[in-house]
C-alpha cells in the first residue's frame, strides 16, 4: 500500500447534465513514501484534475482515493476531504500570485496560524520554512511584492512548506522563471525530497526535469493512465511518446538520431552529461 493510492477512480465534470465531461477514467495510481513521481501528459490530459483529487479539492465520481490513512469516495463529505488535504501541500502554477501579506514572514506564517497555531509557533515554523527555501532572515520584514519573481516564488513555496506537508505536489513550478531560477527551484525540491523525506509529485512538460529528478513517471492521455515506469523506460520509446503528443528530453532525441544512423548505446542516455560521458571515449578513439 503506497502513501497515495487511487483505485479505479473516475471523475466527471457536471455529471448527469448535458455538459457532462469525463476528465479521468479508471485511474490506478500509487505513490510510495519519499518517492519522486513525475506526472506527464499533454495539455488537458487530466493532470490538474488528478492533483485536485489527491488534495481533496474534488471527490471522485467513482472509485477511491487514499492519502496516508484518509479516504475519499463519491459519498465523502467536506470534512473527509479536509483530512486528505492535511498531508498534502500544493505549489500551484504562478503561486506568487497568491501572496498578500505585508511582510514575507507574515505571509508564510498565515497558513499555520489559520490552522490553529499560536503566533509564536507560527512564526517559528515560518522561520524554519524560510531557511528550507534558502531565504535569509533579512527577507523576513520585507514586503513580498518588492522581491524578484524567483524570490516571490520561494516565499510562496515556503508558505506551502509551513503547513508541514508529507506530500508536496508541484504544478509546473518553474513556469516563467529563467534558467538559473529554474535550476535553483528544482534543486530546492530535490533537497526537500532527499533531506526531509518529503514525497514529491511533479506535474510538468519539462522532460529534462523528469529525466533529471524523477524516479517514477506516470503518463496521462485523454484522462487515462497510458503508461508508467522509470524515466529511462518511458523515454526509451520515442515513437510511442510522440503518438501520445509528448516529447522526450533533447538528449534522448539526439541519441535516437544517432541510433537511426546506426550507432548503438549500451544504455539510453537521458541527460547531456550522460550523453557526453558515453561519447567522449568514442570521439577520442578509445574503445
Amino acid at each position: 500500500m503506497g502513501q497515495i493510492e487511487l483505485n479505479n477512480v473516475d471523475y466527471k465534470y457536471q455529471p448527469d447534465t448535458p455538459f457532462e465531461a469525463t476528465a479521468l477514467q479508471a485511474i490506478n495510481f500509487t505513490v510510495e513514501t519519499g518517492s519522486y513521481t513525475a506526472l506527464i501528459g499533454h495539455t488537458g490530459s487530466g493532470k490538474s484534475t488528478l492533483i485536485q483529487l489527491i488534495d481533496g479539492l474534488i471527490k471522485p465520481t467513482s472509485g477511491e482515493v487514499t492519502v496516508v490513512d484518509h479516504h475519499s469516495t463519491a459519498t465523502s463529505n467536506s470534512k473527509d476531504l479536509d483530512q486528505l488535504r492535511k498531508n498534502v501541500g500544493i505549489v500551484f502554477q504562478f503561486p506568487e500570485s497568491q501572496l498578500f501579506e505585508e511582510t514575507v514572514l507574515k505571509d508564510i506564517a498565515f497558513g499555520p496560524k489559520n490552522f490553529g497555531k499560536t503566533d509564536a509557533e507560527a512564526t517559528a515554523i515560518a522561520k524554519k520554512s524560510m531557511a528550507l527555501v534558502g531565504l535569509t532572515e533579512d527577507f523576513a520584514e520585507k514586503s513580498p511584492f518588492d522581491l524578484s519573481g524567483g524570490q516571490m516564488r520561494r516565499v510562496a513555496i515556503a508558505g506551502v512548506l509551513a503547513l508541514e506537508p508529507e506530500i508536496l505536489i508541484l504544478d509546473e513550478p518553474t513556469a516563467g522563471l529563467d534558467a538559473s531560477g529554474q535550476a535553483q527551484i528544482m534543486n530546492l525540491f530535490k533537497q526537500l525530497n532527499v533531506e526531509q523525506g518529503i514525497t514529491i509529485i511533479l506535474v510538468t512538460h519539462n522532460m529534462e526535469d523528469v529525466a533529471k529528478y524523477a524516479n517514477q513517471v506516470y503518463v496521462l492521455n485523454h484522462g487515462a493512465i497510458v503508461k508508467s515506469g522509470t524515466p529511462r523506460e518511458i523515454f526509451a520509446n520515442q515513437q510511442w511518446l510522440m503518438e501520445n503528443y509528448l516529447t522526450v528530453p533533447v538528449t534522448t532525441r539526439v541519441a535516437q538520431k544517432l541510433i537511426d544512423k546506426g550507432y548503438s548505446f549500451d544504455e539510453f542516455p537521458l541527460t547531456v552529461a550522460e550523453l557526453s560521458q558515453k561519447l567522449i571515449p568514442k570521439l577520442k578513439g578509445e574503445q
Binding site: G41, H42, T43, Q93, E172, A175, G176, H205, M207, Y245, L246, T247
Partner: peptide, 11 residues
C-alpha cells in the same frame, strides 16, 4: 512568455 504553460508540442 505566452507559451510558458503549454506542453512542448503545444508550444
Amino acid at each position: 512568455e505566452a507559451t510558458s504553460m503549454l506542453d512542448p508540442q503545444g508550444r
